[in-house]
Amino acid sequence: MARIRSIKPSFWGDERVSQLSRDARLLFIGLWSFSDDAGRFLASHQAIAGYVFPNDEDVTPKKLSAWLDEIAQQGMVILYSNGRVKYGAVPKWRKHQKISHPQPSSLPGPPPDALFDE
């Protein structure tokens, strides 16, 4: 289900955002609408590519993995797994997204040792 999310004007000049490639920036913005109300998302290549890049045949698992790694290296997402399923979460999600009627997440949260502010 599509979600309405906000992009603050300061996003474009953010120091961490400026370190990302253009494609990684686009992916990061796409992950906002892909994420649930707790800022969590399935981090499989198929799920992300199907949602964020449904009409881009040149988005390979290798490219997507590199973009996700860029975003994670900047601390803008946390990638984790629960068994064989890969997940991601956006730290400080609630600081940047105001959800009027948040629904509880059905996805497991990041590990307790992850730097994460729900």
Rank of each mutant, 00 (worst) to 15 (best):
residue 1 M to E: 09
residue 15 E to H: 13
residue 76 M to T: 05
residue 33 S to N: 11
residue 2 A to M: 09
residue 45 H to M: 02
residue 2 A to K: 10
residue 112 P to M: 01
residue 50 G to Q: 13
residue 67 W to D: 07
residue 9 P to R: 12
residue 13 G to Y: 09
residue 3 R to L: 15
residue 13 G to P: 05
residue 21 S to L: 00
residue 85 V to S: 12
residue 9 P to W: 01
residue 22 R to K: 13
residue 11 F to N: 07
residue 101 H to W: 07
residue 21 S to W: 09
residue 59 V to R: 05
residue 82 N to V: 11
residue 15 E to Q: 09
residue 21 S to E: 06
residue 16 R to W: 02
residue 8 K to Y: 13
residue 44 S to D: 10
residue 90 V to Q: 10
residue 102 P to E: 00
residue 40 R to W: 05
residue 38 A to S: 06
residue 85 V to K: 09
residue 76 M to V: 10
residue 65 S to R: 14
residue 11 F to M: 10
residue 52 V to K: 01
residue 44 S to T: 14
residue 111 P to S: 00
residue 115 L to M: 07
residue 23 D to I: 00
residue 6 S to G: 13
residue 72 A to N: 11
residue 73 Q to T: 03
residue 51 Y to S: 14
residue 18 S to L: 15
residue 56 D to C: 07
residue 115 L to I: 15
residue 40 R to L: 14
residue 107 L to Q: 08
residue 64 L to I: 07
residue 99 I to C: 04
residue 20 L to G: 09
residue 17 V to W: 04
residue 18 S to R: 15
residue 70 E to M: 05
residue 101 H to Y: 02
residue 47 A to Y: 08
residue 21 S to H: 03
residue 86 K to F: 03
residue 6 S to I: 15
residue 44 S to K: 04
residue 94 R to C: 02
residue 26 L to M: 11
residue 88 G to Y: 03
residue 84 R to S: 08
residue 82 N to D: 13
residue 114 A to I: 01
residue 29 I to M: 13
residue 44 S to M: 06
residue 17 V to A: 07
residue 87 Y to R: 06
residue 106 S to F: 00
residue 79 L to H: 02
residue 113 D to P: 00
residue 95 K to E: 15
residue 41 F to T: 01
residue 81 S to H: 13
residue 101 H to K: 04
residue 96 H to Y: 15
residue 86 K to P: 13
residue 77 V to M: 08
residue 27 L to A: 14
residue 13 G to A: 11
residue 40 R to H: 14
residue 30 G to N: 07
residue 76 M to L: 15
residue 32 W to P: 01
residue 67 W to Y: 05
residue 30 G to E: 01
residue 41 F to V: 06
residue 45 H to E: 06
residue 10 S to N: 10
residue 71 I to T: 15
residue 86 K to Y: 11
residue 6 S to M: 14
residue 88 G to R: 07
residue 26 L to N: 04
residue 118 E to N: 14
residue 22 R to P: 13
residue 104 P to D: 10
residue 98 K to Q: 05
residue 69 D to E: 10
residue 93 W to C: 07
residue 80 Y to R: 09
residue 87 Y to C: 03
residue 52 V to E: 06
residue 114 A to G: 05
residue 77 V to D: 09
residue 8 K to F: 13
residue 112 P to Q: 01
residue 3 R to K: 15
residue 33 S to V: 10
residue 27 L to V: 11
residue 4 I to K: 12
residue 83 G to V: 02
residue 115 L to R: 15
residue 59 V to F: 03
residue 14 D to C: 09
residue 23 D to M: 12
residue 94 R to V: 06
residue 41 F to P: 09
residue 47 A to T: 10
residue 31 L to K: 05
residue 66 A to P: 00
residue 52 V to I: 12
residue 70 E to K: 06
residue 110 P to S: 09
residue 117 D to I: 03
residue 54 P to D: 10
residue 76 M to Y: 11
residue 70 E to I: 08
